[in-house]
Design a protein around this nucleic acid. Structure first.
Lengths: 129, 129
DNA sequence: TGATTATATTCGTTAAAATGCATCTATAAA
DNA sequence: TTTATAGATGCATTTTAACGAATATAATCA
């Protein structure tokens, strides 16, 4: 954690963000896959668009994630300043298999090129060629 | 953490327990002072009786604390099986000074013999003598 | 036994959180 | 320019959480 002004309220805010199972699963995906857009998270976790978008905005307001816009997609990622905190949390939560299943689902969809990020990555390849 | 069956739901339950500032302060006191009764926690944190009792029952149901009855007092303590988890949490939260203030308040009241636990301890001394 | 003290619980209120449906906006593609 | 897609948001609903006041219970003490 490289946060300059850490206090009880902020810690409480972070922990509140992790008090919801949906958000735990979302942040886990972001943490393992670097960045993801709303529609891909929807697909992997089988959440509605509203639910997914709202949780990501919540996480952004809580100071846990960043976002960047690429064409019509908004890619979210875990903020660098809180990566220590997030890593600490998942050191414990990772013992659960359901989180692994989410990663498996992600991989399958990614390999089948059903995710928006697949296209982003192949675009990167063509830039590199 | 020496929990045999740790899973996402349990982790979520633990984190939910820490999503409330009052509970963060309560568990902090228990963690640092080994065990405390409701009335002492009330005094130190300036909480009402109802509020204090309910949060402790919440924490007990969540599997984070144990309780033992001594005369008319109920002493609560952090469960041994989750002490690793709790320690991890406070490794981050301890950066906040407000938690220190609570400990100071405890010490002052303790030294002034205004806490029920003071009497419990002096009873222990007399047993040892 | 009656009074006191510590804690739990019942009842009711208020606030916050989670979520869906429908809609709006922005961007890209046809 | 129309159409399609991604994402945000307004509105409404349901659930959950936090909390106080009053009361019940249990144990101690005079």
């Amino acid at each position: 954690m490289k946060l300059k002004h850490f206090n009880l309220q902020l810690g409480c805010q972070f922990l509140k963000a992790f008090s919801d199972e949906s958000r735990i699963r979302i942040v886990h995906l972001l943490f393992r896959n670097k960045e993801m857009c709303i529609s891909d998270i929807e697909l992997v976790l089988d959440f509605t668009q509203t639910k997914t978008s709202r949780h990501l905005i919540y996480l952004k307001n809580a100071g846990l994630v960043d976002s960047r816009k690429v064409d019509q997609w908004t890619y979210y990622s875990v903020k660098e300043e809180v990566s220590d905190f997030v890593e600490m949390i998942y050191k414990y939560l990772d013992k659960d298999q359901n989180l692994d299943k989410d990663l498996e689902t992600y991989k399958t969809l990614y390999n089948n090129r059903e995710l928006a990020v697949s296209r982003l990555h192949s675009r990167k390849w063509s830039f590199q060629d």
